[in-house]
Design a protein around this nucleic acid. Structure first.
Lengths: 262, 262
DNA sequence: CGAAATTGTATACTTGATATACAGTATATC
DNA sequence: GATATACTGTATATCAAGTATACAATTTCG
């Protein structure tokens, strides 16, 4: 067993540190005082700060302080701030995955999947600010991928195609999530100013987007239907639904053409 | 005229500083020495550094140094580093937009559009590292959107729908661009180590992704077809094409169902 | 019990962004 | 043309943040 562990350690060596920690692959100490801190405590504290004041407010100093410890104490648990950010990223991806249904409605399931992914951005507006250092490999991230694969379980697609579909959906979720967050911020900022600022960038863009340089964008800006602030309530949500439905249509279309018999 | 300028200034006030600068809306000085530096010089120097050593290597100090000036000299041109990053972002979005064709093949045009967007990530691997602070509003970014709108010029869609389609395509471009960059990096890193490291994360994932927790992901990892490093050459490019074609299918499908007469 | 490992801490170092004050320079106005 | 003015680049300082290192306290193993 010991031998096996050692071999495993060897294999895990190549993993990024943050990934290792998110899988709980740190070495557990035998001697010495029990740690008063722990990775979950640290990560939760960091998440709380990010939720409250944004990701830029998350400093090692502040995280440690919020727990009543000194800055350097954190380094007994995470080897760098980058690790901490990766742990935060994976932690908030722990989303409740609905039980598997016998009757498979893949469109509904994929919708639910995208919804859940976007929800993460809504609950944790800083989520999109975490620097992307590679494909996330933490357990929660992989569980989400497992969920998506489950929704595709009856698809006559190979692994590459399935992962392409997932990439498609998750990239769309990410962009939607970030843009919805931006809109949220703009609304929040606009609400705190006078109502005149309701014009926001619209007025400026109307001056800058000239018809000669921007023949196709110009009418869209001028009409104002898009840039004006009525672009928040009824339209935006549908906006994102629209894109998602197009993706689902595209997937369905592929299935249809690929299985002509069905 | 003076009055008009002043009014415009008022309107532009609400724009983010970086956006203002990218449109050349800084006030031009009347008196005083000619500036030896300029925004383009600074931005190009910063881009050169980022291309060479990554975005994290771009410090005000280093940018100024590479131009033979002191750190603080940059602040006569940009009001913060954030501005500089926004300027870099818009600058590398200055992509050659092909002339408008009379014969409109929207699928080909959109393919070309996505290709060009992804190309930015290939040429400037740091592009995806620039923090997203909102929808980019610089001139080059808007020119790209104008291009996309041009490709959709014959579509019977309203503004919201068109912008949704563009959002769809550009978010896909972004994700693809970032992932391709990550793969590129992994290959580069793998090539510099011994060939044994070719297993990369694959071995580790095979141990971590257990069939009980990851019933659907497990077989995919075990088969190794996806995680193994043969996932770089022939498959990846097609991978991204696959997703793009699905999106285009979805758009086409929408057109078909919306215009039943045609 | 005593050696060893481990924890939290104190301190220091480094890098990076940026505020401020100043010296030099070019223009506008008298 | 003289001079005030506005602007440029610089020198210096400050502040924040990440992190290396050494140490004292603590717990477990032999």
């Amino acid at each position: 067993m010991r031998n096996n562990d050692q071999q495993d350690d060897e294999v895990f060596k190549c993993l990024p540190n943050g990934v290792k920690l998110s899988w709980g692959l740190g070495k557990q100490p035998k001697r010495g005082p029990k740690g008063e801190l722990s990775i979950p405590k640290i990560v939760n504290a960091a998440i709380a700060i990010a939720d409250k004041d944004g990701l830029s407010a998350v400093s090692m100093n502040r995280v440690a302080g919020s727990l009543g410890f000194t800055t350097m104490s954190l380094y007994r648990y995470v080897s760098s701030k980058e690790d901490l950010l990766q742990l935060m990223q994976d932690a908030v991806c722990e989303i409740p995955i609905p039980p598997e249904k016998i009757e498979s409605d893949w469109r509904a399931e994929l919708r639910e999947y995208v919804q859940a992914c976007i929800e993460v951005f809504r609950i944790h507006p800083w989520f999109g600010d975490i620097p992307v250092t590679g494909i996330p490999l933490g357990p929660n991230n992989l569980l989400v991928i497992d969920w998506a694969l489950r929704a595709l379980r009856h698809f006559p697609l190979n692994d590459y195609e399935k992962m392409s579909v997932i990439l498609l959906l998750s990239s769309y979720s990410r962009s939607s999530g970030i843009i919805q967050r931006d809109i949220e911020r703009a609304i929040r900022a606009g609400a705190s100013e006078d109502s005149v600022s309701g014009v926001h960038y619209s007025a400026a863009l109307k001056l800058l987007v000239t018809p000669d340089r921007f023949p196709y964008l110009h009418p869209l800006i001028q009409s104002g239907t898009y840039t004006e602030d009525n672009a928040n309530e009824n339209t935006v949500g549908n906006d994102f639904d629209f894109g998602l439905e197009r993706i689902l249509d595209g997937i369905e279309q592929y299935l249809v053409t690929k299985t002509p018999g069905k």
